[in-house]
């Protein structure tokens, strides 16, 4: 990981940060991780961090096994990094079973140095992280934002299964049977209908016991807050 000093004297091959390739520090040349970076271009370049995956994003890579042998290595690297880059990632490869202490210690260090930790458990996963960082460089956050429109069934399912003990089958039962037990059989099984169904009718549904019904009723009918 700290090899390949030969390229040191040569002029930089590219202007770092432009283009669509991940720029790799030549000292990572022998890292098997490189094989696992897929779907994205790779090139070597004279950079301070190990990987540069975006104009303002850099990654330091650390295997915990290596860390165990050379605990000072990562501190030197972090120091060298200085204050460059906006998003600084420490990609930790968790390949030891005694991970608790090193991770705790690294968490503290990274917090002080404004570095975000990502833990990977396999080379594939680590490679996936690196390529995703590059691919998502300009991606809008829609994927993780609240979506305005969603189809009715899945929202209903998500809402009802948020109640402890209620599973998908129960949602199906509620959806199809509640209208049947209310006194207006032509009514349908809207969310409001379900909310209005009294407990004894819920109890009559297949798969519904007292505990489940109580949970449902607790969620739907008991007040949000105390009146204090």
């Amino acid at each position: 990981m700290s090899t390949a000093q030969a390229t040191r004297d040569k002029p930089p091959v590219v202007v770092p940060g432009s283009g669509n390739n991940i720029i790799i520090n030549p000292n990572q040349r022998l890292n098997p991780l490189l094989e696992c970076i897929r779907n994205v271009g790779k090139q070597f370049g004279e950079i301070v961090p190990d990987f540069q995956v975006g104009r303002t994003t850099c990654v330091l890579y650390l295997s915990l096994k290596y860390h165990r042998l050379h605990p000072e290595y990562i501190h030197a690297r972090i120091e060298k990094l200085g204050h460059a880059f906006n998003l600084r990632i420490l990609l930790i490869m968790c390949d030891v079973s005694e991970h608790q202490d090193p991770i705790r210690e690294l968490t503290k260090t990274c917090l002080i140095n404004n570095i975000t930790i990502i833990v990977a458990w396999s080379l594939d996963e680590a490679g996936h992280y690196l390529s995703t960082f590059k691919q998502f460089e300009h991606k809008p956050p829609d994927l993780i934002k609240e979506r305005a429109e969603k189809d009715y069934d899945s929202v209903l399912r998500a809402a009802l299964t948020s109640i402890n003990k209620v599973n998908k089958t129960d949602v199906e039962t509620l959806r199809t049977s509640v209208g049947l037990t209310t006194l207006c059989p032509n009514g349908t099984q809207s969310f409001a209908d379900i909310a209005r169904t009294p407990s004894d009718q819920l109890l009559a549904l297949p798969g519904f016991g007292q505990v489940k019904v109580r949970r449902i009723k607790d969620a739907l009918e008991r007040p949000f807050k105390n009146k204090a």
Partner: peptide, 11 residues
């Protein structure tokens, strides 16, 4: 009422 809050957030 934690259960109710969770349900509410799903709507």
């Amino acid at each position: 009422n934690a259960a109710a809050e969770e349900l509410l957030q799903c709507l």
